[in-house]
Each structure stands twice: as structure tokens, then as C-alpha cells.
Amino acid sequence: MIEIAAQVVVLDLDDTLYLERDFAESGFRALARRFGERIGGEAFVAACCERLAGGARGNIFDIALTRNGIDPAPGLIAELVAYYRSHAPEIALCADASRFLRRVGQFQTGLITDGPQEAQSAKIKALGLDRALGHVIMTGVWGKQYSKPHARAFELIESLTSSSRHNIVYIADNGAKDFIAPRQLGWQSVQILRPERIHDGLPGETAHEADHVITSLDELDIKIA
């Protein structure tokens, strides 16, 4: 068990509080229902899931359509991406995340998440995080240039909570970008590496590492500083 003293608990979203894979698969199924045999139906879902498991990211739809003998025309891809991002996702918090959120109810809390605003907003609503967390920040509102590792969202949390920097802890999964700004600002940091995560989560260099690494939020005990 890792013990931390803090006043503010700030969380990442994807692969931290729920499994990003679940959102992707929910989106694939939603596309099959909406576009049907125009994209290959269930064969499209199967191809997308296979490519996701194999590590594909940005070109999954193109590959899945081509595999099913369908031309991945730019107009069709644009339709699929728009509907994927706007669909009401069938996702749920990881069990340990639900327990953790109950345990930190007495803290000031926040969320910092990257990604398209529409998709992230749909995830937050589906998971009930708009009600469970105090300060919800989607960097997509400002534009991609403010995605992590940009410090803007972290500095906003500091302003909103009026807490000493060393009394803020950030919990996230991606060692390549998530911990650069909080480390520079003097926050505490915890990396969660769920076995079912999509990304490997490895930091690019020592300066990107979190203070602690866990595989479940049940391993973390946060006390009021």
C-alpha cells in the first residue's frame, strides 16, 4: 500500500478511471448499428477490435473497411469519426475506481483529460464524473496545443483549489506525457498501469516518471495533509 498526504486529488480519465478499450469497442458497435452493411456490419466491428488489440490507432477504420472490401473514402471516414466521437458510450468505471472515488470524497478533486471535447464530454457524462468530481477540465476546449504536457490545465487547478503545490497529487496512466507538467510544478504523482490498458504507458525518460507506480487504485491510501 502506498500512503500519500494531500489536500487535492486530480485524476486522468482514459485507462485511469475506466478502460479506454471499452469506449473504443462501444464506438465500433455504435457505428455498426448506425451504418449497417454500408461498412460491413459485425464484420467491421470484429476487424476494428482485432486491429485495436494489435496496436493500431489512427487508421483502424480505413483498415477495417478495406478488409471488408469497402472503399475507405475520405467522406465516409469523416462520417465514421464524427459519429464515433459523438455516440453515447456504453462504459463503466473500473471497480477500484468506484471505490477510490468514494474514499476521496472529503478531498478537493479534479479531472484533467485530453482528447476531442465531444468524446471526452460524453465519457464524463456516462461515468457520472461531472457529479463525482469538483473541477473537470477538458483540454480539448482550448485546442490540441494545450494538451498534456502543456501546463495550462494544471495551473488552472492550482488557481481553483488555492492549495500548496506539494499538497496536490495527480493520478494518470501515460508516462510519456502525463507527469511532465505536474513534476515541474512540484505536485505529487502516481502512475496507474492497468493490465488491460491500451498504451504501454512507459515514460520517455527519467524526467517523465511518476513518484509512484500502481496497478490498481486499491493500492493507494491518501490521507488529508
Rank of each mutant, 00 (worst) to 15 (best):
A95T: 12
N59L: 04
V213P: 04
F154P: 09
L52N: 06
F44A: 05
A181H: 07
R67D: 12
M138G: 00
I222S: 08
E205R: 15
Q108K: 15
M1V: 13
C94E: 12
D62L: 06
S164G: 03
G36T: 08
A47V: 09
K177T: 13
L101E: 00
L202W: 09
A32L: 06
C49G: 11
G175Y: 00
G204N: 15
R85D: 11
N167M: 14
L129F: 03
L80Q: 03
R99F: 14
I124Q: 02
I39N: 06
Y83W: 10
A207G: 09
A95E: 13
G143C: 05
Q120S: 08
A153G: 03
A78G: 10
F107Y: 07
T113L: 01
I2N: 09
L133W: 01
L76R: 07
R57K: 15
S164F: 15
L220D: 05
N59Y: 05
N174S: 02
G55Y: 07
L101Y: 04
F107P: 08
V9C: 13
R197H: 00
G186D: 12
L111E: 06
G175M: 11
H199L: 14
F100G: 00
P89F: 03
G140L: 00
R67Q: 11
S86M: 01
S86F: 02
F100C: 04
A82S: 06
V213R: 14
R33W: 10
R194M: 10
Q108F: 07
Q188R: 12
K223M: 07
E25A: 05
F35S: 09
S121F: 00
T16W: 05
V81A: 04
A6M: 08
Q117T: 05
G27N: 11
R33Y: 14
D130E: 03
E118N: 01
F35T: 04
D200S: 10
A92N: 10
L76Q: 06
L65R: 06
T113W: 00
K223E: 13
Q117R: 11
I198T: 08
I137D: 07
H199S: 11
S162L: 15
S147N: 07
I198F: 14
A46D: 12
R152T: 13
P182C: 09
G27M: 08
R131M: 02
S26I: 00
G75Y: 05
K177R: 15
Q7W: 09
I137E: 06
L65S: 04
T113Q: 02
H212P: 01
A24Q: 11
L160V: 10
F154D: 02
T161G: 14
I112F: 02
A88N: 11
I124W: 03
H87N: 02
E209N: 11
Y146W: 11
E50N: 12
E209I: 01
I70L: 14
T16L: 12
R21I: 13
